[in-house]
Design a protein around this nucleic acid. Sequence first.
RNA 1: GGCGACGUGGCCGAGUGGUUUAGGCAACGGACUGCAAAUCCGUGUACAUGGGUUCGAUUCCCAUCGUCGCCUCCA
Length: 449
Amino acid sequence: MLHLYDTASRSARELALRDPGKVSIYLCGPTVYGPAHLGHGRATLSYDILRRYLEWTGLEVRLVSNITDIDDQIIKRANNENRPWKDITTKCEAMWFEAMDGINVKRPTDIPRATEYVEGMVAMIGELVDLDKAYATDDGVYMDVESVDDYGALAFQTLDDMRAGGGEREVVGAGQKRHPADFVLWKFSKPGEPAWPSPWGEGRPGWHSECVAMSLDLLGEGFDLHCGGQDLRFPHHENERAQAVALGKKFANHWMHHAFIVDGEGEKMSKSIGNVSNLLDLIEHYDQRAYRLVLLQSHYRSPITLDQATIDAAVTSLERLDGFAARTAGLAAEPDDDVIAAFSTAMDDDLDTPKVMALVFDTTRRANVGLEAGEDVAGLVAAVHEMCAALGLELSAGSDVPDEIAAQAAALDAARSAKDFGVADAIRDELQAAGWIVETTKNGTAVRR
RNA sequence: GGCGACGUGGCCGAGUGGUUUAGGCAACGGACUGCAAAUCCGUGUACAUGGGUUCGAUUCCCAUCGUCGCCUCCA
């Protein structure tokens, strides 16, 4: 069974399942006000890998991932561009899923939108107010963090320590808050802003409430796993948890956080892989699988550098794996037990995908060696495919070769047999110029792309 | 200032108190090839700096330098 690092307990522990055979996961999704960037890619790819592995082990995964479609950033952009905010959210959501499809990230099983949950959030905030754990001010309704005993459990800091630091930062909503860390649950709207009714006045929900309402509604109390980026650990996840705790509800049983990508300069997010800073550009310019492979070759809790060289290296590695797939295309067998066992062991150890990729490459090499020696390597080949598939990495044995290209390959072989090397080289150059990968095998010339 | 993470060979990136190696990419040498490509074999004073613990540290501890994240709305 999977042992996964748990942020709250700060140790790797078994991912305990509330319901046997089923995994309930909540993943904080995007705010749809711009294109999906490379950072979003790491998030979704990391959890796609987790999800696929869990499914591979035979578990039924329910993955809820929300769309935040009402938020200050959205309003700001709508005002700047003088167009309806829904126009922005609709288009950005469509682009988001286009990007997700492009990097082969499976759709969540549930995709709730914030705007669909406003009533539920109002009801929840009402309960908090009734419990005197939330209160209204002139600009909204705030959560009283001091009413939550263990507030700071995910921040690893007490409220006093938090207050001690961050000196020069502006405290939002300062004047009327009971504590500087109190966060907004409901924001009163200004004229012209999108607004929903509430007992305290028209407004919109704060960011931290939607995930609580949605996760508890769709997954129920004590769901298995809550995921997101390390920057969400605090304040977002802390604040989600605070609301659930204040309501007396059991929240996530396990917390998983992934690290960021940085660019070659060590900045938080890449702005310069070539000209690429968003996912759709990346997919357009590079092998879609390259980013996934880069992530698989490092650990999800380590920050990684993503620059031109990193992507290029991954693209080359993929060509190597594709070449292997092409070379072994006809072989079919049950995957080698030992390899698969090693795979499971590594994955169960906090998703040790770097070790798994080392295993994939080692297995590939062993199979290549066996192949030349004329041994039966079908089990190894099948194991490579099994592992890659379980990680969402699809190997390509190449597309169909048109008759005319096959004819050229045959002509190349004929020229070589006749020791007519000038002709042979010319044909090879021609094929390569047309984008075909030309390989010489024992059975003659093989082409693919 | 507080909290968290991190500094590994040309690059990316795992890992470990001690004999032989993560893995990928690149480079170089070799096998194979008509030549290549692919594949395979082999090669490279690696573990930020200074102390300490230890028979022995890249791995543990302390300090220093540097990097990154969070400390109110960013994956």
